[in-house]
Amino acid sequence: MTPPNMPDATSDWYLSDNEPGHLDGHTIEELNDYLDRGRVPANLSIDTSPACQIALASLERLSSAMSSLLQDEADRADVRDDSWVTAIMDGIVRDARSGRDIPLEHPSPHARLFVTEGAVRGLVRAAGDTVANLIVGRCRLDGDLATPGAPITIAINASIYRGESIPALAEQLRQTVAAALSAHTELTIAAIDVTIQNIYLTRHDPEIGQDTP
């Protein structure tokens, strides 16, 4: 029974061309921007309008529906063969991140022997992975790698599981890495700095039910 173009608080803004008439003078665009800003600074006129509150709730529902939509689609996608991963991984060759060349000693004047920085970082990671309850992240070699005997500092980022002793794990990591480096390289290690950057709250249970020695 409402004449056309007359505000009608009982019908919905989204069925009308006259948003301000349904939203106490506001547009849905305004409300959307308000929401995007986290409702700051507070707008009393919006906050006290029942129509606006209902519209804000709709916008939030849409936003939450949207954020789960893509994930749902990803989850629903056929579990296809692994070829797409293989195709990507085959292209990524392992020496693509070799970094600097670190010289190794040899008496012959013709010899140019090196171990790459990338190989050393891989060695550090592999060593770190043997330490239980710890995951190695970044590893950096600081110092003049090109000069034999120059002091090198190894900086390692790692994450651990909650409840583990940080100093004890860090020390274990240091010792394991030091042993690996001295076994494989001729680097003069001045220090191994370990930074614990994250503590995981949930424990990782290896699928194969055996502990790392």
Partner: peptide, 13 residues
């Protein structure tokens, strides 16, 4: 003559 013989270790695993 031999100029150089280069050997680079690119991975250890």
């Amino acid at each position: 003559p031999i100029d150089t013989i280069s050997v680079t270790v690119a991975s250890i695993d």
